[in-house]
Design a protein around this nucleic acid. Structure first.
Lengths: 209, 209
DNA sequence: TAGATTGTTAATCGATTAACAATC
DNA sequence: TAGATTGTTAATCGATTAACAATC
């Protein structure tokens, strides 16, 4: 594990390599080269070796990589080898879809609490959890030792909810609201902005005439 | 409009500037400086000026930018000043949530077709459209002059569906399936990978001890 | 040993930041 | 004119690519 800052793009690629390995291992492949990984992930083989080099040496010169061994290391690097307790705040259509997204649980993202202010939803079951009212947010973060939050509330509420989550001790937020959130240093924030993604597509369409 | 390649990061920031402008204009602001925009978007003022410079000169030296004028230009650059006909393929929970996402319509992304293979869903209304069977995909792309697709089918189906969409003439795909898709040159593809986003968060948490 | 492929260094490329002349 | 702020050029920084010695 390196002390230098790792480029975000590298981590995203590691995630893709890991997914590719799962796929290839299911097909029975046991050994593979950086070139094999590169082809599957759509990058150069130099890129693959450089990405891995940030974290150590995982291959054998002249031979390549053992799929199982490399996969084990990647999962450890990415934190897939442990459970992350996660809370969904805002159980609208999007929040509901995320709770039920099977990919999360498989990667160790354990959605163990859900919050909504709608009295008709409180007490209802979503996935394997029950929807709780906003008042219980802080308590649930503590009792379930929740580290991550999926934020699917309207943009107008997002900053206020974020402040409460941070105060309650949450460490990472995946924000779906179309707004710029402020979080203190040390709290991880990522934005999944559906509108920006669409705008990037339309921009590219215009550029290509 | 510039012939040089525009960095993707620049386009994403333009999108944020545009959103910020809407907000500030609603608060009554008419003129603002690159420093004002920078503060609101969380970047440097040099960055703001550089980003805008790719597309022309929009400000007045010594004065700043007229909010309304700049907003108009940004919307034009990003393609927000026109309608984009969009199809949702796969009306599971996530697809359903996307169709109902009000932010799309406001930005000109007009979801005018929805496809699912589930016979219990076909004919049902989702948002303002009716769900059609997969056989009608190609025809709907043509009759509605659809340019974009939101792909919310399982990863196992994603490539096959993509191939059909491309053959039917679709120009841009926003893919939510956790897989690497291959599209021909000229077709725009963006991946919104929920799992990768979560893995980036967990990676950062591990890095920060 | 000969062929293959890694890990790593150096060269290249591209994006961000700093500085400042132009100009309102 | 003096102060402010743009648009743009040059300097810096960081990430990708190419090349190759190490080594299986």
């Amino acid at each position: 594990m390196n002390v230098y800052k790792i480029p975000e793009a590298t981590v995203m690629r590691l995630s893709i390599y890991s997914r590719l390995l799962s796929q290839l291992m299911a097909e029975g492949i046991e050994t593979l080269s950086s070139r094999d990984i590169a082809r599957g992930a759509g990058v150069s083989s130099a890129q693959v070796r450089k990405d891995l080099a940030y974290f150590g040496t995982f291959g054998t010169r002249g031979v390549g990589y053992q799929a199982e061994e490399l996969q084990h290391c990647l999962r450890q690097i990415l934190g897939q080898d442990r459970q992350w307790n996660t809370m969904v705040v805002g159980v609208g259509r999007l929040g509901w879809a995320l709770v039920c997204y099977p990919g999360f649980y498989r990667k160790g993202f354990n959605i163990c609490a859900a919050i909504d202010y709608n009295p008709f939803l409180i007490g209802k079951k979503v996935g394997v959890t029950v929807i709780s009212p906003p008042e219980q947010m802080e308590e649930l973060v503590k009792t379930h030792a929740i580290q991550m939050a999926l934020l699917t509330v309207p943009a107008s509420e997002a900053q206020a909810v974020t402040d409460r989550l941070v105060a309650a001790g949450i460490k990472a937020i995946l924000n779906f609201a179309p707004c710029v959130l402020r979080v203190p240093h040390g709290v991880q924030l990522r934005n999944v902005d559906l509108t920006i993604n669409m705008e990037l597509l339309s921009f590219n369409l215009i550029q290509n005439h």
